[in-house]
C-alpha cells in the first residue's frame, strides 16, 4: 500500500517501538526512502526521546536524599508501619 505522509506520522510510534506488522513496516520504510520530510520527522522524534530520557534533564535537588532520610527517620520513630489509625 502506498502511504502518504499523514499515514506515516500515525505510524511513527509503532515504527520506533517496533510494534508494526511486517507489511506496514515495509510500507513505512518504502515511504521513508524517498521522503525527506518524514525521515526528518522520524529522526527528530527519536532524538528528542533520547534527549528527554537523559538523566541530566531532571536532576535531584542538592541534599534531596539527606532531607528525605532525615524525614523518614522521624516518621519511623513516630509510628511503626501500619498503625491502625493511619490510612492512605
Amino acid at each position: 500500500m502506498v502511504l502518504n505522509c499523514r499515514h506515516v506520522w500515525d505510524y511513527i510510534s509503532g515504527y520506533l517501538d517496533n510494534t508494526l506488522d511486517a507489511q506496514t513496516r515495509a510500507d513505512v520504510e518504502k515511504h521513508l526512502e524517498h521522503c525527506e520530510i518524514c525521515s526528518a520527522v522520524l529522526d527528530s522524534t527519536r532524538n528528542i526521546l533520547i534527549l528527554t530520557a537523559d538523566d541530566r534533564v531532571f536532576e535531584l535537588p542538592v541534599g534531596f536524599s539527606e532531607r528525605l532520610h532525615a524525614r523518614l527517620t522521624q516518621a519511623i520513630a513516630e509510628t511503626p508501619p501500619d498503625e491502625p489509625e493511619s490510612s492512605v
Partner: peptide
C-alpha cells in the same frame, strides 16, 4: 492526529548539548 514539525535537514542534536542549561530548560 498531531501534525509534527516538518523540517528537513534535521541534524542529530548531540547529547553534549544537554550540558547547556538552556537546552535542558527547553526540554
Amino acid at each position: 492526529s498531531v501534525t509534527p514539525a516538518q523540517l528537513t535537514d534535521w541534524r542529530e542534536i548531540p547529547s553534549e548539548s544537554l550540558e547547556r542549561q538552556e537546552i535542558r530548560t527547553l526540554i
